[in-house]
Design a protein around this nucleic acid. Structure first.
Lengths: 167, 167
DNA sequence: ATAAACTTTCAATAATTATTGAAAGTTTAG
DNA sequence: CTAAACTTTCAATAATTATTGAAAGTTTAT
């Protein structure tokens, strides 16, 4: 496999996996491209490389910046803006986990808490609703806490402690 | 909050969270409904409760069965088919994690392996592609292994060992 | 102040994904 | 075997989501 083919394969695969970490295709592809680029890229570069429109590029770059995984880089003497992504996978994972927790998991936990706290009127169906949503609430909370804890450790904590644990 | 409101809130919330675990809205809602139901439900019951068509119900029930989290229950003397979902959250998480790993994560790991194994032609860009995809590959593999290991333990291993660890 | 270089916004449109409903298929009872 | 009871399939349609492109906005150099 040649460089070009490998590159395209990577960008496509990682792009289609976007859903797994909750972002859309273009966003994931832009991030992928920056991730394997040796230098910061301009909007022009990204548009040409991925064959997407200026508007699309602009919007998705903004979202990536909101997620905290892409940053603008001002090159002295240059008028254009250049972009880079976090290159360290561990840091990348940290950012993504943190954002997903904040945007999706925490709000759901809150609602599960509310639902599982309704008054027990003694009927079987109410009891079941309370029991099951409470179980889900506890699971979600544990999973969320775990994820955040794991991901907020210094660099190699994951590989060090956890790999040991699961072996 | 009354039972009916709490129920609807739960089904909607859990349904919209479907994307997080990689299934569509109707699928997630059907599962939610079964999850808090005190008895097995027929297709008719599900259609009426969620206001979705027969075809939709049929297709999504099949997918849920493919995922291994919903099962048919034949009630003696009844002609209709009845459905139940796994009621234990731990088991549910196990099934979901296993399926996601098989369907999405494993295939991506395979491609990352391929891409990171291209011949190093000595250019900077090839070196970068190899380096970064290798890092992602290792991260993905560790995460996948971790998830599977965690989720394949007996009932309370998670809460016991891991909660201790992260505290 | 003006114009060039660049970015953002957003209504229109395209692409994708989900849903319906009715016809075809299957199973069971008699 | 036949009809009733039920489920599945799938082409048509609706709903949702992503993308474009051009006009409006911003910044910088002169």
């Amino acid at each position: 496999m040649e460089y070009q083919e490998a590159k395209e394969k990577f960008i496509n695969t990682w792009g289609s996996l976007g859903t797994l970490w909750g972002i859309n295709k273009a966003m994931a592809q832009i991030q992928s491209l920056l991730f394997i680029s040796t230098k910061a890229l301009s909007m022009e570069d990204i548009m040409k490389e991925l064959k997407i429109s200026r508007g699309n590029t602009s919007m998705n770059l903004r979202q990536l910046m909101d997620w905290g995984i892409v940053t603008k880089e001002l090159i002295p003497g240059e008028r254009k803006e250049y972009f880079t992504t976090e290159k360290d996978v561990q840091e990348l994972a940290r950012h993504i986990a943190k954002e997903r927790s904040r945007r999706e998991i925490k709000p759901v936990i809150k609602i599960l808490k509310e639902v599982s706290s309704i008054k027990d009127d003694g009927t079987e169906k109410t009891k079941e609703l309370i029991k099951q949503t409470k179980a889900l609430h506890d699971l979600a909370e544990t999973a969320d806490a775990m994820m955040n804890k794991i991901v907020n450790q210094e660099q190699n904590w994951i590989t060090k402690s956890l790999l040991k644990l699961i072996k």
